[in-house]
Nucleic acid binder design. Structure first.
Lengths: 246, 246
DNA sequence: GCAAAAGTGTTTAGTTTACACCCATGC
DNA sequence: GCATGGGTGTAAACTAAACACTTTTGC
């Protein structure tokens, strides 16, 4: 619904505040993490919250989300995906505010330093997320489900890994997300068969005497095929909590 | 981003108009159809447009979409799914307006009568969609892609069929969406193996002497398993325009 | 009986899974 | 030389795809 004539005005129509909230996921090699801020102002001072902000007159929602993330982490090129808007008229008791959540995937190592003390930001273990203000807990739940869904079909989890990673790290990442375990051999074959991985000469010897090869993501193929399907995940239906008996 | 203290106001923050636009899909047995309205007012009087409306003070986005659809078609329980918001600050030259598109799937037969002349609504063959106002053409494209994606994994296309349908009608529906053809036998097996279909005693004899059994959707199983995965579509990756050579 | 569409069966190819096994290395 | 995780091989089970075949029935 739009108009473009200079003579027409939407004067009779309600206007509302529109904000974005960012559900920022990271992975520390062992656990999924969620980046939260401690509010420095009322209401709900010192309570934990998602990082968010109002949309500005000359920016799109996506630009607002990127701006907010930049303020918080210093990062510019972050993977962001829009989730369905939260628009219950009562969700905000001050003024009508619609919030559009975005989930973000970032390499936790890239922003550890920058995490501005302005926001008292902290990386929580995802499963140990504290109570959040307003409807932010629900936003996190929705984001988790969407991440599980999307990552089962598309190679987005690479966004969470450092530039160099081993197959074991990649597998652990998937195992944690789906709270499951995957066969080492089968997983490696699938991962390699995507052609997205470039084997390095260097090995990681932290976990074994033999050492595991590092891999890098083939960024070109990755961007070219972002929407391509993976079948990374065995028993996808079951892992996504879907009963197949029907 | 929200607040709930009575003392706080968002007075310094921009407020914007928020609207919903509905991309209404139907299927006439032969072609996908798109329900459009001819605007009766300026700007763009008599041009074709999606049906939309501004969000009201006491309704959510979803409620607004349902209201708009009810006005247009008389239908209340319509399948609706939110698409990412269109929020370019320049998309509306009058006032800043963010539009949240919803795609709707409806049984074309259920609303033929009601189609209120208030809106000069018409069912266009999807592939023969005229030029639409503003960014509505793009919304339709996004909705088509999302429908293809979603229908490959979930049984939503039943929403487009009448209460009783034959396997052939179901297959034709999928074939048209994916601009492809599917093996009769394999398709029937997959469709039946979902357990979602209840065979009727009656047959449709329009297309053959032998007659094809009618089926009804098992609504209970359908609602229980809405998020369950289907593997209805052979070569899903290729049909969704995804190159697998990587 | 034959045409035409409905519906079933069957062969083959491909993929997935589970699990066994070999490999390289530091101690 | 042996323990440890890294990496490879393989048989069996399952699934998908192609296509041939049988069924029904109005004319």
């Amino acid at each position: 619904m739009t108009a473009s004539s200079g003579r027409i005005r939407y004067s009779g129509q309600t206007r509302v505040h529109v904000a974005v909230d960012c559900i920022v996921f990271g992975f520390d090699g062992e656990n999924f993490r969620l980046l939260l801020i401690q509010r420095g102002f009322t209401p709900h001072r010192q309570e934990w919250s998602l990082m968010g902000g109002f949309i500005q007159p000359n920016e799109s929602l996506e630009a607002a989300a990127h701006r907010v993330l930049k303020e918080l982490t210093g990062l510019e090129d972050v993977y962001l995906e829009q989730l369905p808007a939260f628009s219950d008229p009562k969700r905000d008791s001050v003024d009508r505010t619609i919030s559009v959540p975005y989930f973000a995937l970032i390499d936790i190592q890239k922003c550890k330093a920058q995490l501005s003390s302005d926001f008292h930001a902290e990386w929580f273990i995802l499963s140990e997320t504290p109570d959040l203000i307003f409807d932010h807990n629900l936003m996190v739940e929705v984001a988790k489900m969407r991440l599980r869904y999307k990552a089962a079909l598309h190679p987005i989890l690479f966004e969470l890994l450092p530039a160099k990673f081993t197959l074991q790290q990649l597998r652990t990442l998937y195992e944690k997300l789906y709270e499951s375990t995957f066969d080492k051999g089968n997983f490696a074959r699938k991962a390699l068969s995507t052609g997205l991985l470039i084997q390095q000469k260097e090995k990681n010897k932290e976990h074994s005497r033999k050492g595991a090869f590092y891999f890098k993501l083939d960024r070109e193929k990755y961007y070219d095929n972002f929407e391509a399907f993976l079948k990374f995940i065995p028993n996808m239906e079951k892992l996504l909590g879907m009963d197949k008996n029907w």
